[in-house]
Structures are given as C-alpha cells and as structure tokens.
Simulated scan of single mutants.
Amino acid sequence: MSELSAALPSLPLLPVEVCDGIHAAVAFEVLRDLYGLQAATIAAWCAIEARTQGDDVRYRFWFGVFCDLRKASPVFSLMLPSASKIGLPLSKDDDFQTAENTRGDLDRLLGSRDIGVSIIREIRSIIEN
C-alpha cells in the first residue's frame, strides 16, 4: 500500500443525492447532454478532485454520478483527431467545427482547477435558463 493511499481514509460508498443544491439526477442529465460519451470522464475527474481535497460529500456525489453514467453508457469513447490536424478544410457549418469546439471545451475544462465547481456553475446556468 502506498503512503498516499494509506493517508486517505476509506469512504463509505453511500451515494449523496444532493450536493451544492444540485440533485444527482440533474447532474447526470446535464453531463450526458453536454458531454455525451465523455460525461463519465468529467464526473470521474470531479470525484477525483473532491477526493484529493478531502471533501467526502462531493466525492460521493460525483462518484455516484460517475457510476450512473458508466452504467448508462459503458462504452469508452474515442476522440477523433481534429479536422485541422488531418488536413480537412473547415466551414462555419461543418460538423467537424462543432466537434473541435466541444473538444476544446472539454480540454479546457479538464485542465482547469476546481472542475467540480465549474460543472456545478454550468449546471446552475442551464437550470436557470
């Protein structure tokens, strides 16, 4: 057992249904709609972040969302190379443009600090509109 895993206490896997005023079912739907097959990856990163910060409630919330997303879509997705990397011209209404924008948003999100806070903020803005 590594020192890090020994330092982190084991957590009960009782799911948390509401975190930061957001219900797990709402988080599930929004992540699935926004990120498709990458939704489980986003939820996993939120859980990892919460776990490393020692936030047990957020960890169990995001871990539960992750588990539900994996059950709903147990297929690992493959990110296609961007159209510009394979030498295809892009037009404004090209599907590749949309895929590239989504990939950029996902890369930016995964590279940010406080990914869980960013996702909660995004969910709230969708709910309010």
Results as ranks from 00 to 15, higher is better:
S77D: 06
S82G: 14
L106P: 08
E49K: 01
F66V: 00
P89D: 02
D56S: 13
C19I: 07
V18W: 09
I48W: 05
V75C: 00
L88T: 08
I126C: 07
A40L: 07
M79G: 04
F63Q: 12
I115N: 00
T102D: 15
P74A: 09
C67N: 05
L69F: 10
I86E: 11
P81H: 10
I86C: 14
G116N: 01
L13E: 03
G116M: 02
I120H: 04
D95E: 14
Y59A: 01
L69H: 09
D94E: 10
A7G: 01
G54D: 08
G87P: 07
I22D: 07
G111E: 04
V18D: 11
Q53N: 14
I120L: 10
I115P: 01
L31Y: 02
W45C: 12
S91L: 08
W45H: 12
G36I: 00
L8S: 02
I48R: 05
P9T: 08
D55Q: 05
A40P: 07
E49H: 02
E3M: 15
G87M: 03
P81T: 13
K85I: 12
R124K: 08
K92T: 09
Q97A: 14
R60K: 08
P12H: 04
V26Y: 00
K85M: 12
A50Q: 09
F61I: 08
G64S: 15
I42V: 15
R124A: 01
L8H: 09
V16L: 01
E49R: 02
I119S: 03
Y35W: 11
Y35A: 10
F76M: 14
A83Y: 10
R113P: 07
E128V: 09
C46Y: 11
K71E: 08
E3C: 12
L31V: 03
S2E: 08
V30I: 12
E3R: 14
W45L: 08
S84A: 12
I86Q: 13
K85A: 15
E3S: 13
A83L: 06
L106S: 06
V117G: 03
V117T: 08
A24L: 05
L106W: 05
E3N: 15
T52D: 14
N129A: 14
D33Y: 05
Q53W: 11
P9C: 09
G111S: 09
W62R: 01
S91C: 05
I115C: 04
A24I: 08
S82P: 14
P9W: 11
D20M: 05
Y59Q: 01
E17K: 01
A6N: 13
A24R: 07
P81G: 10
C46V: 11
G36W: 00
P15H: 03
A40T: 09
V57S: 02
D68G: 14
L110E: 00
F61G: 08
L8E: 05
L13N: 01
L109F: 06
R108Q: 12
F28K: 08
A27E: 00
R32F: 13
T98W: 12
V75H: 02
G111Q: 04
G116K: 02
G111P: 02
S91N: 05
K92A: 13
C46G: 10
W45F: 13
T52R: 15
N101Y: 13
A99V: 11
D33P: 00
I126D: 04
R60I: 07
R60M: 05
D93H: 04
S84Q: 11
E29W: 03
R51H: 14
D68I: 06
E29M: 06
I22Q: 06
